[in-house]
Design a protein around this nucleic acid. Structure first.
Lengths: 81, 81
DNA sequence: ATGCATTTGTTCGTATGTATG
DNA sequence: GCATACATACGAACAAATGCA
């Protein structure tokens, strides 16, 4: 999963990250009920701040692509059959 | 060991706490392989949140001044002879 | 072996302040 | 003013290792 963010892009960082995570889910790289990388890991790999990473995840949550369990992690929503 | 934090200081709380613990180690108040106060104790004595105390300890860990054993505690690194 | 308390580890939630464009 | 982004800080849930009774 390539999570590199182009900080010089006109596209906001959090949207770039959301797009990459969305692609990983829609391609099946992250299957149903599979965890996304943790926030701290995303912070490490992207170089973004925690709140910015949260912002990206909140986008996917609003889209219904992921759900979060506090203390556990964030997971790909199982697509309804 | 005076662990009082000045919340009105421009210096971040976690750096203030790290500085105090560092001073305790370098002065020998906490000798080699001696334990630091536990996290919950530091939380009590400083009034800071757990994650903030962790942040302070992570600074000292990166500096090599302390090491942590899960379930046991955090200890002053023995200085190589 | 069981159970409990203590301790650290990891995770997400939320809020505030600052800076930039 | 607003959106973006970072840093700091507090709060909370869940997990795992240790030690002791």
């Amino acid at each position: 999963m390539d999570l590199r963010i182009d900080v010089h892009s006109p596209e906001p960082s959090y949207l770039q990250l959301a797009a990459r995570l969305r692609a990983a889910i829609e391609s099946g790289e992250i299957g149903p009920r599979q965890p996304l990388p943790s926030l701290s890991r995303l912070v490490q790999e992207t170089g973004l701040a925690g709140n910015t990473v949260r912002h990206a995840i909140s986008v996917l949550t609003e889209e219904g692509l992921v759900y979060t369990v506090r203390g556990r992690g964030t997971f790909a929503t199982p697509r309804q059959a």
